[in-house]
């Protein structure tokens, strides 16, 4: 029997002729849990995918000013809105280390990459945001890597260009602290290909821009991003 990955209730498959002919999709969440995941809907900020009525949200305008019009990040694509349910699910996934929960997002990640980055991916490489060594030891896996692996079937497209130097939890810092903190990444290799950075959550966009800045400074032509959640 198929059980919901979140609440472990049995999933009653609604059998109809369509699923009969297509073989149906293996459902991972029950209807009740699935309905609590909110996907991002239009209109969104064209740059960062925050749900917003203007083409550039205030966050992005602030970044433009911060970099004097030369934001190292071209664009971010996200799939889900941050709500309490997703917050709990992501916490269980990455902090508790319930790896299998990540598969809930697989279909949406694949769709988003195909829809937004299909053309780009012919040339570009996917770079997951790394965890620090101690976090990695603690959790045993990196959620950004897991997202990257779900995004493409071609493992050669995924490269690790960074190493994390600081150990402090970004989550515990305030916005100001996060922005002024020194760059937490060290570039291990340079690349002359376009890069799609992958992370789980876009909150202020600082983490991605730290990484993007290092890449741009070392000759990378353009940096895009995919984050599962736009906070």
């Amino acid at each position: 029997m198929n059980r919901c990955l979140w609440c472990d209730e049995a999933i009653v498959n609604q059998f109809d002729w369509l699923t009969f002919f297509t073989g149906g999709e293996h459902q991972l969440l029950c209807e009740a849990c699935l309905s609590q995941l909110e996907t991002i809907r239009q209109p969104v900020c064209k740059k960062c995918f925050k749900m917003s009525n203007s083409k550039r949200c205030t966050d992005c305008k602030r970044w433009e000013r911060f970099f004097s019009g030369d934001d190292p990040l071209e664009k971010n694509v996200s799939s889900f809105r941050y709500n309490e349910f997703l917050q709990e699910m992501i916490a269980k996934w990455k902090y508790r280390g319930d790896y299998v929960l990540g598969s809930v997002f697989e279909r949406e990640i694949k769709r988003a990459f195909k829809f937004h980055y299909h053309a780009l991916l012919k040339e570009a490489v996917i770079v997951p945001i790394p965890l620090s060594k101690s976090r990695m030891d603690e959790r045993g896996f990196n959620q950004s890597e897991a997202i990257a692996e779900m995004a493409t079937d071609d493992r050669k497209k995924i490269v690790q260009l960074f190493e994390r130097i600081d150990d402090e939890k970004q989550a515990k810092k305030t916005r100001a602290e996060r922005i002024f903190a020194k760059n937490p990444f060290k570039l291990l290799k340079t690349t002359n290909k376009t890069v799609i950075l992958v992370d789980d959550i876009y909150t202020t966009g600082t983490t991605l821009r730290h990484a993007a800045r290092l890449l741009k400074a070392s000759g990378c032509p353009a940096v895009y991003a995919y984050t599962l959640v736009r906070g």
Binding site: D98, Y99, V100, G140, F141
Partner: peptide, 29 residues
């Protein structure tokens, strides 16, 4: 011993995939 509450993950420490318990994960995996 519920199969739906046992899963596996690629453990970076051991460089191989192995089993973990989802049922008591709130107490640390």
């Amino acid at each position: 011993d519920k199969p739906s509450l046992l899963a596996s993950f690629p453990c970076a420490k051991c460089c191989r995939t192995h089993l973990y318990c989802r049922n008591c994960i709130m107490m640390g995996r």
